[in-house]
Amino acid sequence: HNLTITQGKLFFHYNPKLCLSEIHKMEEVSGTKGRQERNDIALKTNGDQASCENELLKFSYIRTSFDKILLRWEPYWPPDFRDLLGFMLFYKEAPYQNVTEFDGQDACGSNSWTVVDIDPPLRSNDPKSQNHPGWLMRGLKPWTQYAIFVKTLVTFSDERRTYGAKSDIIYVQTDATNPSVPLDPISVSNSSSQIILKWKPPSDPNGNITHYLVFWERQAEDSELFELDYCLKGLKLPSRTWSPPFESEDSQKHNQSEYEDSAGECCSCPKTDSQILKELEESSFRKTFEDYLHNVVFVPRKTSSGTGAEDPRPSRKRRSLGDVGNVTVAVPTVAAFPNTSSTSVPTSPEEHRPFEKVVNKESLVISGLRHFTGYRIELQACNQDTPEERCSVAAYVSARTMPEAKADDIVGPVTHEIFENNVVHLMWQEPKEPNGLIVLYEVSYRRYGDEELHLCVSRKHFALERGCRLRGLSPGNYSVRIRATSLAGNGSWTEPTYFYVTDYLDVPSNIA
């Protein structure tokens, strides 16, 4: 807008934040220059609390790290170098490059900038070799853009010569660093050979998330399962459950009422301010606690030095998902009996873990797994792929695949051998790939016309006998059925096997 004052003059007093240069501009645009008398524009009460600059400061050096910015700028000295009290560095987070010096300023003089007072450097006698002032900004957020400017702080001049310097606002972004852990990993099994893994992005990506790394490792069953005799009275049979499938998407929606109208769909109840505040506090606490764990609990591995020492970490090797089922080394339970199943799973520490690289999504279907087997899954978020990966501390989750139908069934015939004193040795093959492992066998036998009897055969007993022995049988026709019990439950009964026990007292003698 054009402003013209045809008559009258300007009068400025007691404006401590208004620089004289701005008042002189007002004289020019209003056409009143030359009308004012000496005392109409006070030299001592206008701009006496402001830094009124008329020179431009330029930054000469900028260096960044993930949490620091090192700045240096060209030296500046007023005509009387004693008038320079120091520099004021202003900075704040700036997602967009549209910041002005006066953003967030209120009537009390406060604003949204963080201000650092910096002492002037030592003055050199040689004007050509003056030290460049600077400042190291610490405690910054990774991968965050900051708006920065600097200006001088000078003393009051009796001659009211307006001098000083100020830089333009520059924008500097800190470097990326390792992201925080992925949030809320959930693993479920939808079949006997697959596990579905879902997660949420890290709360602090500290860069642009480029991919996720998912490692999985087959877990050995508890050692007590191999040692305890679950045929003993009072000892509860062990059981394991597989990871249940995901709930429906509708039930997972946030901010939804727990109660549904019987007449149909209901609208979600909005969260109160107290609920939102509580969630923010919980989120802040979780982030602080995660940072504490990362800094205190997890110790970084030592990389190899120039002395030739090897990095103890196993090298990563990509495998196809079809090879995942046989990740671990199978060892027989008892070496003397080769027909026992290889369900003991000690994992070799030198073995390469299978892994998958996930790009542009937060889910993965891990296939080719062994049925009813526990897996430990390790999830890392990465925001750099080359020249070397920059990934987060791992988040861990466990899951067990679903049982395989008929995996616990005894394959092959049940054979028998009759000894003296009416002892019958029953023999059968253990299931080759049971659900988890076989903890015991149930032997059901009966003599024709009598009630059915049951015998429990422990895992250890089966390994020693290759089956079991029935003792003290009365003469007669017998039928026997056997079924295995694994961590997933009972298998199917075998087809009945028949044998006849004679009275050993009636056996004919070869003595003449």
Rank of each mutant, 00 (worst) to 15 (best):
N206W: 15
N208R: 04
T210G: 11
W216S: 02
R218V: 02
R218D: 05
Q219P: 13
S223G: 02
L225F: 03
L228H: 02
L228W: 14
D229H: 09
L232K: 04
L235N: 08
P238I: 08
S239L: 12
S239Y: 13
W242T: 11
S243A: 10
S243Y: 05
E249A: 09
H254V: 06
H254M: 13
S257K: 08
S257T: 08
E258T: 12
E258S: 13
S262W: 06
S262H: 10
A263S: 09
G264S: 05
G264N: 11
E265V: 07
C267P: 09
S268R: 15
T272L: 08
D273F: 15
S274C: 15
S274H: 05
S274M: 15
I276E: 06
I276W: 12
L277R: 14
K278A: 14
L280R: 12
E281V: 06
E281M: 04
E282V: 11
E282Y: 15
S284G: 04
S284I: 00
R286P: 04
R286S: 05
F289Y: 03
E290T: 06
D291Q: 12
V297A: 10
P300C: 03
S304G: 04
S304E: 15
G306W: 13
A309Q: 10
E310H: 07
D311T: 10
R313C: 14
P314F: 12
P314K: 13
S315Q: 08
R316F: 04
K317V: 06
R319W: 13
L321K: 12
G325M: 14
V327D: 12
V329F: 15
A330V: 12
P332D: 08
V334T: 13
F337T: 10
F337G: 12
T340W: 13
T340V: 06
S341A: 13
S342I: 02
T343E: 10
T343F: 07
S344K: 10
S344Y: 10
T347F: 07
P349Y: 10
R353D: 15
R353N: 13
F355I: 11
F355D: 03
F355S: 09
F355N: 14
F355G: 12
E356M: 12
V358A: 12
N360K: 05
E362G: 03
S363G: 11
V365Q: 13
V365L: 12
S367H: 06
S367V: 14
L369D: 01
L369W: 01
L369M: 10
R376K: 15
I377W: 02
I377R: 00
E378P: 02
L379A: 09
Q380P: 00
Q380L: 12
Q380C: 10
A381F: 01
A381V: 03
A381L: 01
A381T: 07
C382R: 00
Q384R: 14
Q384A: 11
D385P: 08
E388C: 13
E388N: 12
R390G: 08
C391R: 04
S392R: 01
A394R: 10
A395K: 15
A395W: 15
A395Q: 04
V397T: 02
V397I: 01
S398C: 12
S398K: 14
A399N: 07
A399L: 11
M402F: 05
M402Y: 04
M402T: 05
P403K: 15
A405V: 09
K406V: 12
D408R: 01
D409L: 12
I410N: 03
E417S: 04
E420K: 14
E420L: 09
E420G: 06
E420A: 09
N421G: 03
N422T: 09
N422I: 02
V423H: 02
V423Y: 14
M427R: 09
N435V: 00
L437H: 03
L437P: 08
V439S: 06
L440G: 15
L440M: 13
E442S: 07
S444Q: 10
Y445T: 03
D450W: 09
E452Y: 04
E452A: 12
L455D: 02
L455W: 05
C456Y: 01
C456N: 01
V457E: 02
V457L: 15
F462P: 02
F462D: 02
L464D: 13
G467W: 03
C468H: 10
R471N: 12
R471C: 08
R471I: 11
G472T: 05
S474Q: 10
P475Q: 07
Y478C: 00
Y478S: 00
Y478L: 00
R481H: 06
I482M: 03
R483Q: 12
T485K: 14
S486V: 01
G489Q: 15
G489T: 06
N490D: 02
S492T: 06
T494A: 06
T494Y: 03
T497Q: 12
Y500V: 11
T502D: 02
D506P: 09
D506F: 15
P508W: 03
S509H: 15
A512V: 03
